[in-house]
Design a protein around this nucleic acid. Structure first.
Length: 1036
RNA sequence: GGGCGGUUAGCUCAGUGGUAGAGCACUUCGUUGACAUCGAAGGGGUCACAAGUUCGAACCUUGUACCGCCCA
């Protein structure tokens, strides 16, 4: 054997051997009926392995390997997520880099084809990286959330797409999905809506401007401000209402000014109109002053401008007060440059403010951006608006002292602009400022599907670990918001909804009732509003599926149209044109067979999380009732980051319950972010990112995996420390050298069948210790305490096997007693095998390599049988006690020697002044071991220990090292005093407790008994120390 | 502001009512045939603070301080 394990050479070879032998396949090594299934949290197809993946997948692999060895019918289902925004971003960047036409230039179909090309080329990166980690996924089942989608190349297996579409249709049919104009988070960079979870709110430096909104018609009122005691601190006549805002450009879309109903300062002007102080003077809009609970009288001026289309709070106020919501921005975040002139729009808006009726759709067509600001970027527009208002003298002014060059101070009036930190929303992908935007989107009506999910966790069908995760889960679900699932992207599952023109316009009627259309009737249909009518829509898995519904829709229209052929066109515009053309043609030839009714499909795609929400059933073949679905669903454990508890975990639970009425998994294991050694988030800009592949290159995958396991305490913070990784690499080397020692002592050749039944105390003892650690590991893994499992194994292999067992075995392996030698070889072989088996889930590579090197095997280690022996059967109390006594004695002697500066290599004689029968028997059986490890050359019986003897007090015996001449009296005295001091402290505590009568009364009997025994032992020890000190005193 | 959590050895962390633990780091010693990626010995803690419950509190309760994370 080499001196160390060559991870770089062995890992790839071992992994390929496993894979080629089908070791990871679902059901491999199954020997019992129970199944065990873990779904990988699908990494983004654009992703590359980072420490979070490495950690997360190590834990999954440990669980999977452990169950597979235990004979469960095991499946670890791998796959990747199509990651809508991220992937579209990557491919667009790629196009730009290669100077290819942009996405919009090449069009949707060509672009999607490019994405698929990219996926074929680069999408497998993370799979190969997971293999380097040792992940034992069933790669033959690798899934992809876009598989089966239109445009997918031949080589792309699977059909996740059908499952996604079916779920959408099912949920739509059940009324769980709806379309609506809502305020959503709009990403101006990607030009798509995103969900509120994809928004990061970051505090940035901002400004608060204060402007005057003049009252209509020059009206005035008395503005009175009072302090807490009701004393008037300010009283003045005002012809305006003061408004504070951080976003002046949105003033253009104001629909009202709101004050709190209890705010006395403004009571007099509630119901009156005020003027928005921006835009051409001749078209200044007047808006009403209303009351609403939302404004906080203590914040700013207490009056709030209401821009329903661009602020979430204002949106609620506007809805309550039926205030029109004017959209100001286009999809890129620039001020709108469409529609009628500002003059026309403002006139109509004024009519609405004065009480005219309006529809949502109409309001959305009104562009309230003054002509000179149209098309400007939102931030540029803000500056212009501020400048215009200030120039007009409508900014609130405050006095300020200015100093000129000559040092002269003058009092000037300046606009009141507060510098203050404001929370600003940013897109988590695009990093640009998110705009609340009023748009048509699809939503999951989460309130209708949330209860089963809550009950699943409350009722214990699903357990979330750590427990605190459950509280967070409840809190979020109990306050759940509708989930916006449409995205204005091209890469994703296109929403299976088709729209048609609404022919139910009130004016559209068959005047003659003759069942035919004449020109007048058609003219009304086309000109009088159909363009402005809403659309009708129907949902089905494909175009064929919606035809029936549209046919029903047309049933009430005049005969030629009711029978029109339904065709699919690109969008609404082509639908209008096609329809108009068809009608015109009909007028000419009166041929009803040529009449068409065009419909168009919703161009939007579904939120990626909607598809990954079906991951558990989708990967198992649903909606088909596959054998795998029957066997492995519901799955067992989900291991994932707590940061996606809402994004993914909660939604999966809700969706699985809504779709198949079953929980997706029984246990959710949540973990935090992997941070650097100091606890800082890893980030490219800080430069503290640790690449797991570099760690694997340097230390081997096993070291990284062991570190991950050791970090994984429930709810613990994950701080990745290089020194720790190096330490666990060393642990691997330690194990390797244990095997090397075994090889050198002909242990590999030993024949072992079953658990050995040795005669030597040492061998009996180590078998018991092995049983203990097996139980500890199983218990730890049962409870997802990976750190406990790792620590137990580390302590056992290094602290018990390598430190003591190997050392003690040397005299036996190299001695004359052939029987002892043979049984020690057998036992050591067995112990080594157990170490390899128990460590395999955490350190699969080095253990598999040693497994092959250390004997001829029928199965690879990955499929070895996990042991079930119990401490109750294998721990021998007497052997346990004896070995601990021997170890204790050796440690005491070593300690005394070191402190007395006895040269390490020197063998010294030892005396024994008293020893009980048990101690004597232990000595007799282990004399060779003790002498060798404590460097003792002989034991002599002595009635009393002579002067200059260092006392070694152990249970049942007093030994002494006659070190007269070598001994430093002062040092020995200090040593004994220190021991006695410690002892004294303990004795005080023990006696105090026992003296307290309430202790004996209330404490459990075994605790009292334990305390008594403890006290007796300590007192005995103290007596010996005192004797030793007395002897020492004689020397002085 | 709301929610969840943390504060234990120099560092990173275990420890959920009964004598304070591990790894790393540190100090001293050691080329003993498995291993220097090692071995032996050692130093190091008012368990954030305060009050309470209890025979007994790192652990339970309440409050305070500070630090995280998530959501407004």
């Amino acid at each position: 054997m080499e001196k160390t394990f060559n991870a770089a050479e062995a890992e790839d070879r071992l992994y390929r051997a496993w894979e080629q032998a089908g070791c990871f396949t679902a059901g491999a090594n199954a020997s019992r009926a129970e199944t065990y299934c873990i779904m990988i949290p699908p990494p983004n197809v654009t992703g590359s392995l980072h420490m979070g993946h490495a950690f997360n997948n190590t834990l999954q692999d440990i669980l999977v390997r452990w169950h597979r060895m235990r004979g469960f019918d095991t499946l670890w289902q791998p796959g990747q997520d199509h990651a809508g925004i991220a992937t579209q971003m990557v491919v667009e960047r790629e196009l730009a880099k290669n100077k290819l036409p942009s996405r919009r230039d090449m069009g949707r179909e060509a672009f999607v084809e490019k994405v698929w090309d990219w996926k074929q080329q680069s999408g497998g990166t993370i799979v190969n990286q997971l293999k380097r980690l040792g992940a034992s996924c069933d790669w033959s089942r690798n899934a992809f959330t876009m598989s089966g989608a239109p445009g997918a190349p031949e080589v792309e297996e699977g059909n996740f797409h059908d499952a996604v579409i079916k779920v959408f249709v099912d949920m739509y049919d059940k009324g769980l999905i709806y379309r609506g104009k809502r305020l959503v988070n709009w990403d101006p960079h990607f030009e798509t809506a995103i969900s509120d979870l994809e928004v990061e709110n970051i505090e940035v430096a901002g400004h608060m401007w204060h402007f005057k909104y003049p009252l209509a018609g020059g009206e005035t009122y008395t503005y009175v401000e009072k302090d807490e005691d009701g004393k008037v601190v300010l009283e003045e006549q005002r012809d305006y209402i003061s408004i504070a805002t951080t976003r002046p450009e949105t003033m253009l879309g104001d629909g009202a000014v709101a004050v709190h109903p209890s705010d006395e300062r403004y009571a007099a002007i509630v119901g009156k109109l005020c003027e928005i102080p921006v835009g051409p003077k001749e078209h200044r809009r007047l808006i009403p002053i209303i009351t609403d609970e939302y404004p906080d009288p203590d914040f700013g001026s207490g009056a709030v401008k209401i821009t329903g289309a661009h602020d979430f709070n204002d949106y609620q106020v506007a809805k309550r007060g039926n205030i029109p919501m004017y959209r100001l921005l286009d999809t890129k975040g620039a001020l709108r440059d469409d529609g009628l002139s500002y003059a026309d729009c403002a006139t109509r808006a004024q009519a609405i403010a004065n009480g005219a009726g309006f529809t949502e759709m109409e309001v959305d067509t009104l562009n309230m951006v003054p002509d000179d600001l149209r098309g400007l970027d939102r931030f540029e527009a803000r500056a212009r608006v501020v400048a215009q208002i200030t120039a007009e003298g409508l900014a609130v002014m405050i006095p300020e002292v200015q100093t000129d060059e000559g040092g002269n101070e003058t009092l000037v009036s300046v606009p009141l602009v507060e510098n203050k930190p404001i929370m600003q929303p940013f897109g988590d992908r695009s990093k640009v400022v998110i705009e609340p935007m009023l748009t048509d989107q699809w939503f999951v009506d989460t309130s209708k599907i949330v209860d089963p999910a809550l009950n699943a966790v409350r009722g214990g069908d699903i357990t979330i670990l750590p427990k605190s995760g459950e509280r967070t889960f409840y809190h979020w679900l109990e306050n759940i918001e509708p989930w916006c699932i449409s995205r204005q992207l091209w890469w994703g599952h296109q929403i299976p909804v088709w729209y048609g023109l609404d022919l139910s316009a009130p004016d559209f009627r068959d005047d003659e009732g003759d069942g035919t259309l004449d020109l007048v009737e058609m003219g009304r249909l086309l000109l009088n509003g159909m363009v402005h009518m809403g659309d009708v829509h129907h949902c089905a898995a494909d175009f064929d599926g919606v035809q029936g519904a549209f046919r029903d829709e047309l049933a009430d229209t005049p005969h030629p149209i009711a029978d029109a052929r339904i065709i699919e066109v690109a969008d609404k515009q082509s639908a209008l044109e096609t329809f108009a053309k068809a009608l015109a043609q009909y007028e000419i030839d009166q041929d009803p067979t040529k009449l068409v009714y065009p419909v168009w499909r919703d161009p939007d795609v579904l939120d990626t999380w909607f598809s990954s929400g079906l991951w558990p059933i989708g990967t198992l073949g649903w909606p088909e009732q596959t054998p795998e679905l029957g066997r492995y669903f519901p799955t067992d454990v989900l291991v994932t980051g707590q940061d996606i508890l809402f994004f993914w975990v909660a939604r999966m639970i809700m969706m699985q319950l809504a779709v198949v009425d079953e929980i997706p998994f029984k246990t959710v294991y949540l973990h935090g972010l992997v941070r650097d050694a100091k606890g800082k988030k890893m980030s490219k800009s800080v430069g503290n990112v640790v690449d797991p592949l570099e760690i694997i290159d340097e230390y081997g995958a096993d070291a990284l995996r062991f570190t991950n396991a050791a970090m994984a305490s429930l709810g613990g913070v994950l701080k990745l420390d290089m020194q720790r990784i190096a330490g666990y690499r060393n642990f691997g080397t330690k194990l390797w050298n244990f095997a090397r020692f075994a090889e050198m002592n002909d242990v590999f050749e030993a024949e072992v069948t079953g658990i050995p039944t040795p005669k030597q105390t040492l061998n009996t003892w180590i078998i018991g210790e092995t049983a203990k650690v097996r139980a500890e590991v199983d218990d730890a893994l049962d409870n997802f305490r990976f750190n406990d499992a790792a620590q137990a194994l580390y302590g056992f292999v290094w602290g018990k096997v390598c430190d003591w067992y190997v050392e003690f075995s040397k005299p036996l392996l190299q001695g004359e007693d052939a029987a002892a030698q043979a049984e020690t070889r057998q036992t050591m072989k067995w112990v080594l095998d157990q170490c390899l088996i128990l460590l395999q889930p955490i350190m699969p590579f080095i253990t598999e390599e040693l497994w092959a090197l250390s004997g001829s095997r029928t199965k690879p280690l990955i499929h070895a049988d996990w042991p079930t022996y119990a401490p109750a059967d294998l721990v021998d109390e007497a052997a346990d006690h004896e070995m601990n006594w021997v170890i204790g004695l050796i440690e005491s002697v070593r300690s005394a020697r070191a402190q007395m500066h006895v040269p390490a290599g020197l063998h010294v004689p030892m005396l024994v002044s008293e020893i009980d029968a048990r101690g004597q028997a232990a000595w007799d059986r282990n004399e060779v071991l003790i002498k060798r490890l404590a460097r003792i050359e002989g034991l002599t019986q002595a009635d009393s220990l002579p002067k200059g003897t260092v006392t070694i007090a152990v249970e049942g015996a007093t030994f002494g090292l006659p070190l007269a001449g070598i001994i430093d009296i002062a040092e020995e005295k200090a040593r004994l005093e220190k021991t006695q001091q410690k002892l004294g402290k303990e004795l005080g505590g023990l006696r105090g407790r026992l003296k307290n009568p309430k202790f004996a009364d209330s404490a459990p009997a075994e605790v009292v008994e334990e305390t008594r025994a403890n006290l007796a032992a300590r007192e005995e020890e103290e007596a010996r120390i005192k004797e030793a000190m007395a002897r020492l005193a004689e020397l002085e």
